[in-house]
Write a protein that binds this DNA or RNA. Structure first.
Lengths: 140, 140
DNA sequence: CGGACGATGCAATGCTATTGCATTGTTTCA
DNA sequence: TGAAACAATGCAATAGCATTGCATCGTCCG
């Protein structure tokens, strides 16, 4: 098969299209989480709205997850194979570098499971750390 | 003294003004974290920009802290007495209710201190949980 | 062939945050 | 007292991201 990514999409019940394959490729190629504008740029000059809807579809199908890192723009990163839209496996923390403004996944840092008092019903927990990433910290 | 809030402002090196006293009062009266629009509404019809700058000043002086709960709008809540702009004491988690869209502080839930591998330098950690708050959970 | 459906792309809009600039109000000092 | 100096306020305008409406295109299927 020319495009191994097709299987990835089909496995998530996402109809493969050229656009979607391109977006998926970009996400796979970049370790850091990407914003809508990032993807748009990396794709050359794809239509912003189409990319937006592509990422929305990916999110709804459990292929990527949204990260709100406080930079103002939502970032997206690929999920692990076992994730579903409702239940994300291996919920990990994220790191936002205040210098280069890159957001990276910290797969080794699990989000703690915290019991809340009373009738609270927790659906999702996000743990975002801010500071200097390895590159920027060593660059001074 | 007619306005006990004045002392609070002065202790933070914030010049007391009627506007600032009003904003402080609103923040003190409401347990949940408030967005800019919330404060604007609760104040009657104060100028949005002035409220924005008031909250910015409060944040810089360590009187309130910003909470990015993923709702799209930044929320603000009062700090504990010991907080400074650089070092917030008692860093606690926050809870965002997906039903009533209210964000509340969880003073009893401390943000875990996590050691990161390599050269990472952590400046700030935020822990936001989403789900149903006590009101909405019991309301079905 | 032709309808149905999904994907795409342009245009337009909404919402939040933010800056510029003029005005007001208050403090300070001669 | 009066005027300069400074901070706070408020209106207007702008920027940036997200989102919706609608028309078009392409493909799948009867």
């Amino acid at each position: 098969m020319a495009h191994p990514q097709e299987d990835t999409l089909i496995a998530r019940q996402i109809t493969p299209t050229p656009m979607r394959l391109l977006v998926l490729e970009v996400l796979q190629r970049h370790p850091a989480a990407l914003s809508l504008a990032d993807v748009e740029l990396l794709l050359g000059h794809a239509d912003r709205i189409t990319v937006h809807r592509t990422l929305k579809t990916f999110t709804e199908k459990g292929l990527v997850h949204r990260i709100e890192d406080g930079s103002g723009a939502v970032k997206f990163a690929l999920c692990e194979p076992g994730c579903t839209p409702e239940h994300h496996q291996d919920l990990h923390a994220h790191f936002f570098c205040t210098r280069c403004r890159e957001t990276s996944c910290l797969p080794t840092v699990a989000v703690p499971i915290i019991a809340l008092p009373g009738a609270y019903q927790v659906q999702e927990t996000s743990l975002v750390m801010k500071g200097l990433c390895e590159n920027c910290a060593s660059a001074g």
